[in-house]
Write a protein that binds this DNA or RNA. Sequence first.
DNA 1: GTCTATAAGATGATAGAC
DNA 2: GTCTATCATCTTATAGAC
Lengths: 190, 190
Amino acid sequence: MNDSETVTHILDLAQELVQKRGYNGFSYRDLSEQIGIKTSSIHYHFPSKGDLGRALVVRYRASFQTAFVQIDAHEDDLRMKLRLYVELFRQTLEDEGKVCLCGMLSTDYQTLPPPVSEEVQRFFVENEAWLTRVLEEGQRAHIFRQDIDAAKEAAALLAGLEGAMMVARAFGDVERFTQTSSVLLAALEA
Amino acid sequence: MNDSETVTHILDLAQELVQKRGYNGFSYRDLSEQIGIKTSSIHYHFPSKGDLGRALVVRYRASFQTAFVQIDAHEDDLRMKLRLYVELFRQTLEDEGKVCLCGMLSTDYQTLPPPVSEEVQRFFVENEAWLTRVLEEGQRAHIFRQDIDAAKEAAALLAGLEGAMMVARAFGDVERFTQTSSVLLAALEA
DNA sequence: GTCTATAAGATGATAGAC
DNA sequence: GTCTATCATCTTATAGAC
């Protein structure tokens, strides 16, 4: 499954639709109409909807891994690293009220084909792992509170951001997300 | 729309299905089969799916208002009030991996009929209002941090709990929710 | 790779008998 | 209030021609 132009087009649009409407909120027909290609052609690239869903999360995970490498390479300030991370989500929300792909899929969780749900889990594991590393480093540098468990704090931060995206979108108000993310980050300060 | 036995049965099952599978993850047929009544009979009580969805959130909001009254009446300790509130969500999660009805609906937000989405907004407003009151009272009693904005902190707590339910369920691990909720509550301590 | 044609089943919804 | 019957539409998916 390499990425021809068509495949990329399908993935881009499908991701957008999942982020806006959820896994059960879009169909091959939606993709068909907006791409200008028949549904059977989409099935050629992604035989089942589960195949498409899985490809979506795999690519999304990879984009976050890339972001982690970028942030680690170009930013030393640990507080700024977290702010850049939060910024990834804020931009998504600003972009027509989309929320995190995996936050979205986690609500559809019980209806997902297992190959998809496994990838969603992996996303959370990887994100928490990176956040934990940043927090631990920050603790060693006496930037973040010493009396916290970095891993648990990382999980809480991620959960908080995911929830904040959902609530903020329900109000059509990105500022709500920004405020909640500030509160979550402030809780880490020494 | 009073609550005959049948109506209550429909609402109970529909709520369970939304909390597990989302608004677009259940159908009148699902209700029909599990209740032992034809879909046309369900349409008699709830002409459109939007009518059903709206009734669901109205009832859910009312159940939280009742919980608020109960907590305020029987518990003076402000920390305990918050713990009892968190416990409402934890029990939901423990009950077969259901998540907050409105957390669920907030991801389906862009596909909801307006009457439903308006009720979802109201749920968040009401919950934040109660939490804000508890936090403000706790600040006056010097139990919670003085350097926080109660309203913003309330929003962050609610968002954090909503997100924590989603993530915890994706791992099939209620303990994950418990840990994150502890982190969120700890951040309020003076 | 994309198309036409088609399938089997699901979905929200309505008309009218009992 | 519940049933049968029926609806148009949508959904995922496949077979086979170009």
